[in-house]
């Protein structure tokens, strides 16, 4: 495999170091940037994110990264959203009051309620099974129900989402990953999921 060039978007709220480690370990060349021009012209873009949706959107808008992401997606470049990065691709979130997302897909991000989770504790933290809904190239070499690391209190509603490729169960079934054309995303952290996560990242690098 030739050395793939990966752009990790750094808008000040992501576990950039961990992601960089994982992609570098798997042989990719990693660029970390907040420059919209570089994002537009990269074939592989990672949208990470840890923290609050509202704050993240503020940081993204301030740097005009939202437009760059939409443009790079239109061009057919691959984009991979992770955790909050996946949520930011949605239409909106109710975290810290209603906030609009980047809108690459229509779905909304809502908070787990203890009603939803049937008394399960919030946040949802730890390794949980990722149940494959469809055969997908991201899951190559992985068993259905493989364990991945989650840490979140909000989730993306799977309503009408035809591109969902996995769900996970935490009192309710929620969307744990989707893949639509050149856009994919996981609610879990592959870069923190040991061998399972490395396999998934390797699969992305083979896109």
């Amino acid at each position: 495999m030739s050395k793939k060039k990966i752009t990790i978007i750094d808008y000040g709220m992501g576990n950039i170091a961990s992601l960089k480690n994982a992609f570098t370990y798997l042989g990719a060349e990693v660029v970390v940037t907040d420059d919209p021009e570089k994002i537009k012209n990269s074939n592989y873009v990672i949208l990470p994110g840890v923290g609050s949706f509202k704050r993240a959107m503020e940081q993204i808008k301030r740097r005009n990264i939202d437009d760059a992401i939409i443009e790079t997606a239109k061009k057919g470049n691959y984009i991979f959203g992770i955790c909050l990065g996946m949520q930011l691709m949605g239409a909106s979130s109710t975290e810290d009051s209603y906030t609009k997302g980047i809108g690459l897909i229509d779905n909304e991000v809502i908070r787990f309620s203890t009603n939803d989770t049937k008394g399960n504790k919030i946040p949802h933290v730890g390794f949980n099974s990722v149940n494959f809904e469809k055969k997908n190239s991201l899951f190559k070499g992985l068993k259905d129900g493989s364990d991945f690391y989650f840490v979140h209190s909000f989730y993306m509603s799977p309503k009408n989402l035809k591109c969902q490729i996995s769900t996970s169960y935490y009192g309710i079934n929620f969307l744990s990953s989707f893949h639509k054309d050149n856009i994919c995303a996981t609610q879990f952290h592959p870069e923190k999921s040991q061998g399972n996560g490395l396999q998934l990242i390797k699969n992305f690098l083979n896109f």
Partner: peptide
């Protein structure tokens, strides 16, 4: 919590 989220 505002900066990094309560899950952090």
């Amino acid at each position: 919590s505002k900066n990094f989220g309560e899950q952090c």
